[in-house]
Write a protein that binds this DNA or RNA. Structure first.
Lengths: 202, 202
DNA sequence: TCGTGGCTTTACCAATTGGTCAAAAAGTGA
DNA sequence: TCACTTTTTGACCAATTGGTAAAGCCACGA
């Protein structure tokens, strides 16, 4: 039995890897990949730089690890959209889940935005493997709802883009929004529900 | 007459400054501020690095110059929204102008997105001085349209955010969109017109 | 108590990067 | 053509940055 040693990583390993990834999420999401330095991550994590390189082989591995983890959580709300549920309810619930996620995980949203902005150099494989199939699948579902008259006629692909754009905007452009209307963004919920509700109803 | 010497910059100065800014727009919008290097900009501009520093005092000045120039063009479509025009027409025309701009100036859109994503460290003064007053002014206009029943009841601030988010999304997330549906995004026009049309009509 | 293996640190390195400087080259007007 | 200014360049520098090496530390089982 080669590769024997299923020995789980020790408690200290788990703790430190978690600390590093949490610190790295702060730094990467705030400054982008190139803008982040191992020293910043090390300081934020409360560890020395060589110590960080004991747990990860390099800066890139930390980044890739974060992106992989992110992809799972990121797709959850879309996965949950149920083809057998009530169309309008399902779509509006999806909008709400995405908005909640942007609010609860703004760092993840910005990490993702940074990566895509730069052309997704490190994430393209994940996108092709995970996001694309799911996107296509849900587009079919929505298009079917549209074709069978259960919602108003609509372009499913661009509808999803609009949902992504409007919800993630509150995390990615928070600096601008905060400057323009301050931190009180509760009205966003009602607004987005109204926006997408209005185009879905026949 | 102090500061005498209004001597316009020579033709060669204008040409080289333009080349540098154009190259820098490529590089900054693709890699972000920290990710861009003077060497990359120099090569893209076809000039040597010291030569670039003959025209600009440093990396930051190039970036700031780009952001200043950007701000003007960026606000134009919103400036053009006419308080005395037909409300629905005006708003839908604004959506279209923003979408056209995202398509024609994707580099500028990404430069802006990068800057805001990082918390607008170099742009906050411009935003406060130029964007905020214009935003507030147009919000009043839209809110008035809403209050007087010329369009459906709506939150003007979040409506503008949704317009920004959906239109700029096609430039900023182009890598993702291209991967999901390819480069054919003509359907975006009709979709966005329908989306915002539906929420504006009573 | 000792040794062993996992964890941490100190000291260091090579490459990259923003930027300088003085001298060469190229214009330019008289 | 010549003096003078503007533009360009090659050589160089200090700071930063990702990463390495090796020695030290520490917990724990025998």
């Amino acid at each position: 039995m080669p590769d024997a040693k299923p020995k789980k990583s020790s408690r200290i390993q788990q703790r430190n890897r978690y600390r590093i990834l949490d610190a790295a999420l702060d730094v990467f999401s705030a400054h982008g990949y190139r803008g982040a330095t191992l020293d910043q991550i090390a300081e934020a994590a409360g560890l020395s730089k060589p110590n960080i390189l004991y747990y990860f082989s390099g800066k890139e591995e930390i980044h890739v690890t974060l992106l992989s983890q992110l992809m799972e959580t990121w797709l959850d709300p879309l996965v949950d959209m149920d083809a057998s549920g009530d169309p309008v309810t399902e779509i509006l619930a999806y909008v709400q889940r995405k908005l909640d996620m942007a609010r609860e995980l703004p760092r993840e949203s910005r990490l993702f935005a940074n990566e895509i902005l730069q052309g997704a150099p490190r994430m393209r494989p994940h996108l092709t493997a995970d996001l694309k199939p799911l996107f296509d699948e849900k587009c079919v579902v929505i298009q079917e709802w549209s074709d069978t008259g259960k919602i108003a006629p609509i372009d499913a692909q661009h509808l999803i883009f609009s949902i992504w754009a409007t919800t993630q905007h509150y995390a990615d452009f928070a600096a601008q929004i905060d400057l323009l209307i301050g931190p009180n963004v509760e009205a966003a919920d009602a607004h987005l529900q109204a926006l997408f509700s209005s185009i879905l109803r026949k």
